[in-house]
Amino acid sequence: MTPNDDLSSKRERELLAGFVLGDLSAEELQEFSESNEIRRQEDDLFRLEQTAAAVLLVNRMKTTDDMPASLRRRIQTQAEPQLQLNATAESRTDINISPRTLPDRRLSTREVFAWFVAAASLLVACSLWFSNGATSSAVSLAQARDALKRQASDLIEVAWAPGTSPFKEKVAGDVVWSNLGQNGFMRFVGMPVNDPTVEQYQLWIIDPERDDEPIDGGVFDITSTDECLVEINAKLRVDRPVAFAVTIEKPGGVVVSTQERLPLLASVK
């Protein structure tokens, strides 16, 4: 190792620690995202997250309040559909949406934030823990979607319709979503295959009760024009969705879409 290599890895370790502490500046985030080395640091990231959690547990207060009873009831109600899904699929290893891969091209600061929120948060932070949890009893996306349709008492099911900039050929399919379970799936038939190094699809959930800005529902790729299923990965809790929209964005997705290319829309009646 040369002295320069050592300096470089020291800087990357510092940036990793800053990320775990949540104190990276916009410039540091940019630097962090442009480091090829970072792609090989998931193990370190996991250990630092685990260290921070352990430090937090050393000194937590002994006498803290219980959460409000009404909140506890809501959490219990919200858990029911998810637990039903868990029962159907004891391991959800292959139905959790794949974390976004870090795009190869340079990213804007806003895109870096989008990527970190989506990928470098839970899934990457816990990747070591998670990757070791793989089992052979994983169910398919289709089975998980079927289970949601059978079990969710508040199921929303809406068909895709052309958006403001439709595809040349009609795309069929639908969205299924459960507010209680906070999960759902998109189904596409005849959707154009995208080149992830050039552009990616991104789902947006429009929920005016929750926020004026649409909620990011996850970046995804389509690899076949046959039927494709994609699990929705909402970054915020969805209260009352009125529509689901698919836009075409730069690799890695964006935090706020200009909606210049919005080929598909599914409106909740």
């Binding site: 959690a53 937090l56 547990l57 391991s91 839970l122 823990w129 070791n132």
Partner: peptide, 25 residues
Amino acid sequence: WKNSGRFQSTLGSEETFITMIARRR
């Protein structure tokens, strides 16, 4: 609830797993 299937006691305690998820969120 969603990630419970990924917990492995050999890699740490439940409390740490839950704290990691909570802190990151």
